[in-house]
């Protein structure tokens, strides 16, 4: 028995967050303000995502936490531990076994199902922020659908770099209405935003929640002559040989050797367990010894 109320937050707070989530689901892409609580972790470590997860968790749920696709990095491990301690829910690293997946900066490679919830940690929910510093003005722009400024950002990219250089937090338009920042996921993941699972976005410091219901239309912004390109590193995974997953570049030594591996560790491991081996990988049984 834990000394905490289930999932750390008190019941009234969870109700308040659930109301914000429901409003977010009713108006896809709209940033709903909510009274974000102080959490026992610093801002920037996923306080928004943790509050949203706490509000949707049930005692019988199984939870998975990923950070940049990986299950075993500090952020993922500490948040997983947090919910093990405060909610005593089962945790897993397998995408298909999870009911609630909290993620930082990635969407799992494996397609999610309708009975799963994907919770994003969002640092800056306002896609127009770096062009228009005034919150009053950006809210008005959202309300009146004045999104020309978003294209100015993409224009600047092309003028400076010859192509749209925005590689993460690539702005999208939801159901032809709200322009939304999909949190800093790589633009490779943008096409996956139209999925079967419920997607919830929580920004703790900025006190905003927004959401995408299942199968919501999500279009990445672009120019007619510079169409959206969900690019990734042009390599197969060195461990599992996957050609179509998003890759991390890992520097191997100080003479410039590098290696590209799947950023989604669960996906990579399950492929290796199924017998796929990349150029620098070893068969799975041997590696686990």
């Amino acid at each position: 028995m834990s000394d905490y109320n289930f999932a750390y937050l008190d019941e009234q707070t969870k109700r308040m967050i659930r109301r914000a989530i429901l409003k977010g689901l009713a108006v896809p892409g709209y940033q709903v303000p909510f009274a974000s609580r102080e959490m026992p972790m610093p801002y920037g470590w996923g306080t928004g995502g943790v509050q949203v997860s706490a509000a949707v968790l049930c005692p019988e749920d199984t939870m998975k936490v990923i950070d940049q696709g990986a299950d075993d990095t500090t952020n993922a491990v500490s948040i997983r531990k947090f919910f093990e301690n405060t909610a005593e829910v089962a945790t897993t690293e397998a995408t298909e076994e999870a009911d609630v997946i909290q993620t930082r900066h990635r969407i799992p490679e494996q397609d999610l199902r309708e009975d799963q919830i994907l919770v994003y940690q969002v640092p800056i929910p306002e896609p127009l922020r770096f062009l228009e510093p005034s919150e009053v003005e950006t809210r008005k722009m959202h309300a009146l659908e004045e999104y020309g400024l978003m294209h100015v950002k993409l224009y600047e990219d092309i003028a400076r770099n010859g192509a749209i250089a925005t590689a993460y937090a690539y702005p999208v338009k939801v159901e032809g209405r709200y322009v939304m920042d999909p949190s800093p996921i790589p633009k490779f993941d943008n096409p996956k935003l139209e999925m079967a699972a419920v997607q919830l976005f929580g920004a703790g410091r900025e006190q905003r929640i927004y959401a995408l219901p299942p199968y919501t239309q999500v279009v990445s912004l672009d120019f007619e002559d510079h169409p959206f390109d969900p690019s990734k590193a042009d390599h197969p995974c060195a461990l599992c040989g996957s050609e179509d997953s998003y890759l991390d570049e890992v520097i191997m030594d100080d003479s410039g050797r590098r290696m590209f591996v799947c950023s989604d560790t669960d996906y990579c491991q399950s492929r290796r367990m199924a017998g796929h081996v990349g150029t620098e990988g070893v068969p799975f049984e041997e590696a686990s010894l």
Binding site: G148, L149, I158, D222, D225, H226
Partner: peptide, 8 residues
């Protein structure tokens, strides 16, 4: 762009 131009 504010009035909808989207051809760079």
């Amino acid at each position: 762009m504010a009035v909808g131009a989207c051809h760079y």
